[in-house]
Design a binder for these strands. Structure first.
Ligand SMILES: [Mn+2]
Ligand SMILES: [Mn+2]
Ligand SMILES: [Zn+2]
Ligand SMILES: [Zn+2]
Lengths: 139, 139
DNA sequence: TCCGGATATTAGACAAAGTCCAGATTGCCG
DNA sequence: CGGCAATCTGGACTTTGTCTAATATCCGGA
């Protein structure tokens, strides 16, 4: 997939296309995630956004990430019991998690086949299927 | 698989077979998990074990669950960003998570096939593959 | 049985992630 | 400019989990 350059200016349009009012703080937070294309925790986003001078509060970082999540701009990845990661890649994909380093990387869903899953309980719909491969350095 | 009845008396042998010294507290905690065969959080274990009268401290509950984990007596399930679940079922299996209720149930690994996973980075070994089907009640 | 060391448990202080709220700011429209 | 909705904020608060130093329990040997 051809990748565009994620400038702050592009962020406003991206936010608007997801029905999010583009404010200064929201643009900075989106830029932190999309320019890096990495999985970031709220704490990491907080640190990135406030590197030069403090300009975004903790409450806003959490509120904004939750808003992005609701609007489908980012995805949540739950692999570490101590923190949630936010993922700017919303296309269907899986994850490889290096347990000793905490490094998290993507596995394209295209090449992975999952079959034999049981039928869902009546009245239920799948919200998502998370596949996490946990690896560690060989002893 | 034929299932035995998990009495407190059985717990001592189970603990010993996993190289765990069976103390009163450890037996109670193991009994909470194995007699129910459910996924429990530390908090839930704490509540169960202290129903009649307070007899096990928070520190011991956490220490013991971690010990059980290290000794392979239980397994950790990470699906909810706010708490870890402990699973007395250590046979390979996957999970179905009902996001609105928090209900967690097992999916037998036998019938599920996962193929096409990429090769691991050199020097890495798989510690486990977690597959979580997230479902919610239809709108 | 008594002693001493190793093992296990404890209360409570602490830390980290995340939530909540009431007040201040901002942006926009008339 | 004045009003109003939307947004942002500091800081108190909650929850989950960790740590520590003191105590209690267990067990093997004299
Ligand atoms: Mn700035
Ligand atoms: Mn008892
Ligand atoms: Zn990802
Ligand atoms: Zn399970």
């Amino acid at each position: 997939m051809m990748r565009m350059h994620y400038t702050r200016d592009n962020m406003a349009g991206l936010l608007r296309s997801h029905d999010i009012n583009p404010t200064h703080q929201r643009i900075e937070i989106a830029h932190a995630l999309f320019s890096r294309q990495e999985h970031l925790s709220a704490d990491q986003v907080m640190a990135i956004v406030n590197t030069r001078h403090s300009e975004t509060s903790k409450a806003t970082v959490y509120n904004t990430l939750k808003l992005f999540l609701e609007k489908g701009l980012v995805r949540e990845v739950i692999v570490d019991p101590s923190k949630v990661f936010f993922d700017p890649n919303t296309s269907p994909h899986h994850h490889l998690y290096e347990v000793d380093t905490g490094k998290l990387s993507d596995i394209d869903a295209e090449q992975v086949q999952i079959s034999g899953l049981p039928l869902l309980p009546a009245g239920m719909v799948t919200e998502g299927i998370d596949l996490i491969v946990r690896v560690r350095r060989k002893a």
